[in-house]
Nucleic acid binder design. Structure first.
Length: 574
DNA sequence: GCCGTTTTCGGCCCGACTGTTTTCAGTCG
């Protein structure tokens, strides 16, 4: 049983606790455990064998025992017993916006509604309005909630959400009276997948700003329209919240609505331990109504003796402690990238020529580019045969003579075959400046087979970088089964690099693994996997997640200057 | 269910909006 499955069980245990009217704190503890398990870099089996589960903050005796049972037997008797009493449809009902455990329980127990179909019909017949706590509006909201549940998964790629957020931001900024306004929430934290858009604004008179906001032309539906907080659904289907506070309150509100929730809880806990109450309006000492003045977020952190914590780091993954000890990383920035690695050309499935890709990179201020087309195994895109490789290398040699102050590297994205061998002979492989190895076929192997396959490729002396290590496509395709920990250990042991594939749908290696990988001595390569000149700009997505992974420019290969370090990739082979 | 320099009980972050209610529970972030 893998982490995702075990995490899912704790999520359901949390919902079951709510449905069963247990202490809300119990449910919260389960939810917390679900998140911890998902973010864990250590192998669960190892932790079980070492008997060290309870060393993890948030995992006590009880939850540890449940994890042990799940890992050892693949089952959890207490969960199975509770779960059997609740129909699947009840869990689906909990996903409807506006319906929580209390109302769902009434629907289920008092009205025997156990699926979305029955719920929809009951709302249409106005059968629910007689129930205590329900009314016509509730029925309408449930119907709208069922529709959006069906229409949208409720999750969005960062770049899509970010684009819409920028549009709303610029329109809100134009509303008269708005002093400051920023995108907050998970978009500001640069999460790879987000649920909604959060915007925070500073203004004196919030009422007319709210009116202007809910009247924006691309607002499809108003969910909430209050004096200081409103929530709408945009035409695109994404939810967008606006919060308006006074200019003095703005830094606190921005921090609060940037989250994450877990980071906020941590900060509030710290505040409380110092006798300070912290909310979205300020910091208040004791019972004082007058807050500690802060002109920006940095002042808030300073008030607790903390260094400024970048939004990307606010995931409660040790950033508050690190800020207190002054050991936060100097996060990588887009301008730190000196070269572009991993682009495709019209030799395979790219749109542009080698020259067009090179000039596009040069015009963006980069010093080098590594052309990494597909190898022969990938016939669907016309992978390069050895003769094509020779032809491409000749063309690169000629271009390098012609294009000044720029270097084109001879690279390849070589397929890792099913047995872990590579798609070319040693002779062909040694003709490249840089070799990126990737899995593109046979995704459905067992975890053990896939892990061995990839590790064998990592151990191959020709390989510099392991591409998109899990093969995931966000919101589309699950990652293939692979033991990331063992793969990363192999990369570190062999002084290789792992790709941070910056295609917005990949963002693979996942940022949650980066600190572990760094600790194991792995290097990173932020690669656009560009199939056109515009695709080069994807690198920024990779920088975003690298920042979430606490990476500094020294961790990333293509932050190196090719002139200062002509054998940029040779050092990998030491 | 978790946690502990207040250590085996009694806390656990805090506030806005809605709908149904007639002062507040439920939901959400």
């Amino acid at each position: 049983m893998n982490k995702e499955e075990i995490s899912q069980i704790f999520e359901e245990l949390a919902m079951l606790a709510e449905l069963n009217d247990e202490s809300p704190f119990k449910s919260r503890a389960y939810m917390n455990a679900a998140r911890i398990i998902l973010d864990l870099t250590d192998d669960l089996e190892t932790l079980v064998n070492e008997n060290s589960l309870t060393d993890i903050e948030g995992i006590g005796q009880n939850i540890a025992a449940k994890i042990v049972e799940l890992v050892n037997t693949g089952k959890l008797k207490s969960y199975d017993k509770l779960r059997a009493l609740v129909p699947d449809g009840v869990f689906q009902m909990l996903k409807i916006s506006g319906l929580g455990p209390k109302k769902v329980k009434v629907l289920w127990k008092k009205y025997a509604i156990t699926n979305l179909g029955d719920l929809k019909m009951s709302c249409e017949r106005h059968a629910l309005k007689a129930l205590p706590g329900f009314g016509i509006k509730t029925e309408e909201n449930i119907l709208a909630g069922i529709e959006s549940l069906k229409k949208f998964s409720g999750k969005w790629l960062y770049i899509e959400a970010q684009r819409w957020a920028e549009e709303v931001l610029s329109d809100v900024a134009k509303i008269k009276g708005v002093v400051r306004v920023e995108i907050a929430g998970s978009i500001r934290r640069k999460k790879e997948v987000v649920k909604d858009i959060d915007i925070v604004a500073a203004a004196d008179n919030s009422a007319h700003i709210m009116k202007a906001f809910v009247s924006l032309p691309y607002v499809d539906r108003i969910v909430q329209h209050g004096k200081t907080k409103s929530e709408v659904i945009l035409n695109s289907g994404i939810q967008c919240d606006l919060r308006v506070v006074s200019n003095d309150e703005y830094p606190f509100a921005l921090h609060h609505f940037t989250g994450s929730k877990e980071h906020n809880v941590r900060m509030r806990g710290l505040a409380k331990s110092k006798g300070i109450k912290m909310n979205e309006y300020g910091l208040f000492e004791g019972k004082s109504k007058r807050g500690i003045p802060c002109k920006d977020e940095a002042d808030i952190f300073k008030a607790f003796g903390l260094d400024y914590i970048e939004p990307e780091l606010r995931e409660d993954m040790g950033e508050v402690d690190a800020a207190g000890e002054g050991v936060l990383p100097q996060l990588i920035e887009g301008s730190d990238l000196k070269g572009i690695l991993h682009v495709h050309t019209n030799y395979t499935d790219g749109e542009a020529t080698i020259e067009e890709m090179a000039l596009a990179a040069k015009s963006r201020g980069y010093e080098y580019i590594a052309i990494c087309d597909h190898s022969q195994n990938l016939t669907v895109v016309g992978g390069l045969k050895p003769a094509d490789v020779r032809k491409q290398h000749k063309e690169i040699d000629a271009l390098n003579k012609r294009i000044k102050n720029f270097t084109i590297l001879k690279g390849i994205e070589v397929d890792i075959l099913a047995d872990g061998s590579l798609d070319y002979s040693d002779k062909v492989l040694s003709s490249f400046d840089i070799v990126i190895a990737a899995v593109h076929t046979r995704f459905k192997m067992s975890e053990e087979d896939m892990t061995r396959r990839i590790i064998r490729a990592v151990e191959n002396p020709h390989v510099d970088i392991l591409a998109h290590p899990t093969g995931r496509l966000l919101l589309t395709r699950e990652p293939y089964l692979v033991d990331m920990k063992r793969v990363i250990d192999a990369i570190g042991n062999h002084k290789k690099a792992v790709e941070i594939n910056a295609h917005p749908q990949r963002l693979d290696l996942d940022w949650r693994w980066m600190r572990y990988a760094k600790g194991r001595g792995a290097k990173f390569a932020i690669c656009p996997d560009a199939h056109s000149t515009d695709g080069i700009d994807n690198v920024i997505n990779g920088v975003n997640v690298a920042r979430k992974g606490w990476l500094e420019k020294g961790d990333v290969l293509n932050c190196s200057d090719l002139k200062k370090c002509p054998t940029l990739f040779d050092r990998l082979h030491r």
